[in-house]
Design a binder for these strands. Structure first.
Lengths: 131, 131
DNA sequence: GAGTAAATACGAAAACTTTCGTTTCACAAA
DNA sequence: TTTGTGAAACGAAAGTTTTCGTATTTACTC
């Protein structure tokens, strides 16, 4: 029996909307629409449709507040970050996170400061694991 | 004058094909098709279309070898990895690579070995920069 | 040159994503 | 209760990606 193929990843526009919701915590169609860049020029009904789809896909839930719907992510941004990294690592880095980081730290555009932060993060994690 | 909006990122299927080409170095439609998973069941003409599109988008070039075309990436896998990471970092990590790594090293699924490798990479880069 | 097996060229169907218009609904103000 | 305003519901148009069919071309064989 074949599954319907749910990629469990957000599309471009879905991610755009989730980003605003993660930032807001929760919000109405109007809230999200107002938060988009000036030049985005998306119709109200389009925004409503995106949120409806996100609800169908269970990335958000909604409750009613008076006559409007308030939408709220069911999936945290951090969880989605992890999911995206896993996907990228699988598709492009042989499922080897270290090689992903290798590519990142070999990027000349990366500042020394960022490198220092990264090392601190790794050290902290290694310390916690052993301690 | 508005640009047509070329995202310079590969679509799902395009990436699937580029991955095989990166692995092969170069190859014909048949070569790539044969390299796909058993259960992929893609028509020959579909594969040919994807490669044609990749050529239009200038991700590959082709030369003729007898009656067939041999396709070859114009963009290295490492360059595309860098590009993808930059995109993900921008869209989901506030354009802060360190926070991307933070999410990665906080993933419980990451092995201690991988962590060690990551630290070694960072150390090497820091050492080279200062030396 | 005619036959044929395999590849290319091209257009378009199918599937999915993004956008929007129209209708319906809910609430509030007169 | 009617009317106006803004939201929701829904379907579908528009845009993009993925898949494939048909026609044509190419190189090889006889």
């Amino acid at each position: 029996m074949r599954q319907k193929k749910k990629s469990d990843l957000l599309t471009e526009v879905e991610l755009e909307f989730m980003t605003e919701l993660w930032d807001l915590g929760e919000g109405t169609v109007r809230d999200v629409l107002d938060k988009l860049p000036e030049d985005r020029n998306l119709a109200y009904t389009s925004a409503a449709t995106i949120l409806r789809i996100l609800e169908q896909k269970e990335f958000v839930t909604s409750r009613k507040d008076g006559k409007r719907h308030v939408f709220k992510p069911t999936l945290g941004k951090d969880a989605y970050q992890t999911r995206s990294l896993k996907d990228l690592s699988m598709k492009l880095f042989d499922d080897t996170p270290a090689s992903l980081v290798a590519r990142l730290v070999n990027d000349d555009a990366l500042t020394e400061e960022a490198l220092g932060q990264i090392r601190a993060l790794v050290d902290r994690r290694l310390k916690n694991d052993s301690g």
